[in-house]
Design a protein around this nucleic acid. Sequence first.
DNA 1: TCTCCTTATATCCGTATGTATATAGCGGTA
DNA 2: TACCGCTATATACATACGGATATAAGGAGA
Lengths: 118, 118
Amino acid sequence: MPDSNTCLTPRLRLKAGDTIALGPGKAQLLELIQQHRSISAAARAMKMSYRRAWLLVDTMNTCFENPLVLTATGGNQGGGAELSDEGLKVLALYRQYENAVSERPELTELASLLSKNT
Amino acid sequence: MPDSNTCLTPRLRLKAGDTIALGPGKAQLLELIQQHRSISAAARAMKMSYRRAWLLVDTMNTCFENPLVLTATGGNQGGGAELSDEGLKVLALYRQYENAVSERPELTELASLLSKNT
DNA sequence: TCTCCTTATATCCGTATGTATATAGCGGTA
DNA sequence: TACCGCTATATACATACGGATATAAGGAGA
């Protein structure tokens, strides 16, 4: 038997008021923006429309005191984007949080109660 | 100043495969079902359609090895519902999990970076 | 100055999700 | 035996979310 039968994966989203400030999708987007130095390239990598990616970035930037993503327009590459110091910090904290959350004993106990055919 | 400015509330959903086995809504539904001993009363309390409540119960019952909600039809009250032992256990574990997760230091640190006008 | 690729933004449309509504069946109790 | 209120289920409809598309603007470099 390989291993991963009856597995529970926690998904964590942080709500500020009634808008989701951060979640799995936004975190991955941040990561890809930093990798590609571009919102549109990150969107393509996630097979997500640029519109959606831009909206996600926009809500993150307005949710937090300082923008997480810094953008520039123009230039020979048309512009680009990268994470601000605060963006890097937020991403790191979220990943750290995710790790802590996914290692709790309640998870494995809940997983043991799952049905086999998943 | 009262208190709760710049507050982050974590929302935790547990995915089994690609279906959400448990989340904030389903947990609250379980709680209300146990309180009212009725799916429809619980749905009304959450201002949710009976159909939706029933679908949530159905996915929970099929996600887990044993049903979390036991139902009965007929009788002078028309029937009713209550949590199984496994349902009670799952709910308790989820609440415990929630508590642990909402007390992590990363949360308060992230919250301190939020914008004021939320 | 022209080109290029990106950010930024608006409009339109399809799909998917949930609500509303209707109906059948069940089985204690009066 | 008739009633009642619930579970269980189907169908039709509204609405919201995301994708596709179009367009403007920006600015470094050739």
